[in-house]
């Protein structure tokens, strides 16, 4: 197959892939009449930018945004830092049983989260944490198996002499981690933070189970509620979806290099 054929196939494919995305943006800018008559075209016909403002005004957006940010940023910081610490322990501190324990860490990656759903519900109920944000935050504060794996692999590749010099120097393990290994693992820190951001920001199952009142609902929950109520007002729906997706897209463009590098590292190494 020639290079030209490749480019033609890729271009057609890219158009097919980009079309729903562009159409979403076009629809979000239409009036109600425009949605019905616009059909599959990408041009809004009648421009209406205030779909965004009315989309935001139709529900307590800033409450939901605050909840989403809390349940995303705290797990991002917590899971990344703790995973780095644990990964360092597995990679650099020799101890008997370390390999076996790391095997358990890997095995938990295969476990479906749903097995713990009912008992976690009962656990958080007895901790008096129903209808709060705690059940969506706390489980992420003790390290994620996948990130522990990533950090361990990364630290194993760093030269062991880094640790030896510091040990001779009399530095404790914690200081070695904090002042040498943690700063060196910046690519994994960024990749893990982005992955955790995407998964927490879009998390839907756990908030649905633990949160009932509007006061603590997150943006995906709000959008899901919005979808079932405002089924007919498509332009408002699309505007709201775009607002929900926007942070992920922004982060992607800001950290594109790290994300692509991080994803490749996670999948191939």
């Amino acid at each position: 197959m020639g290079k030209a054929t490749n480019i033609v196939v890729l271009t057609i494919g890219s158009l097919v892939f980009a079309y729903p995305f562009l159409w979403m943006i076009a629809t979000s800018l239409r009036t109600r009449q425009g949605v019905a008559s616009g059909g599959i075209s990408l041009w809004p016909i009648q421009w209406q930018f205030n779909n965004y403002t009315s989309g935001l005004a139709s529900f307590p957006f800033f409450t939901y945004l605050t909840n989403s940010l809390l349940t995303t940023l705290i797990p991002v910081v917590g899971s990344v830092l703790v995973s780095s610490l644990v990964g360092f322990g597995f990679a650099r501190i020799p101890a008997r049983g370390s390999g076996l324990l790391f095997g358990i860490v890997l095995a938990t990656m295969l476990l479906p989260q749903e097995v713990t759903l009912v008992p976690q519900f009962i656990l958080f109920r007895s901790l008096d944490m129903m209808d709060t944000l705690y059940p969506i935050i706390l489980p992420f504060m003790f390290g994620m198996p996948f990130f522990i794996f990533l950090f361990r692999q990364f630290y194993m590749r760093l030269p062991a002499s880094l640790t030896d010099a510091a040990v001779v120097d009399g530095a404790g393990w914690f200081r070695i981690w904090r002042s040498i290994y943690l700063p060196l693992s910046q690519p994994i820190l960024v990749a893990a933070a982005v992955l955790q951001f995407m998964s927490s920001w879009n998390n839907f199952l756990t908030p649905t189970i633990f949160i009932q009142s509007d006061r603590w609902k997150t943006l995906p929950m709000a959008l899901a509620g919005f979808t079932s109520v405002n089924r007919t007002d498509t332009s408002l729906l699309m505007a709201t979806s775009i607002i929900v997706v926007l942070p992920c897209v922004l982060i992607f463009f800001l950290a594109q290099r790290h994300i692509i590098g991080g994803i490749s590292f996670t999948g191939t190494k």
Partner: peptide, 30 residues
Amino acid sequence: TTAAFWLFVSPWMFGFAVFTFGPMVYSLWL
């Protein structure tokens, strides 16, 4: 050194016990 290892991995062990392993055993009983 061994003690340092266990302290470093203890956050994960705590989380595993409270949010994964404990709930799994409990779920089997349930």
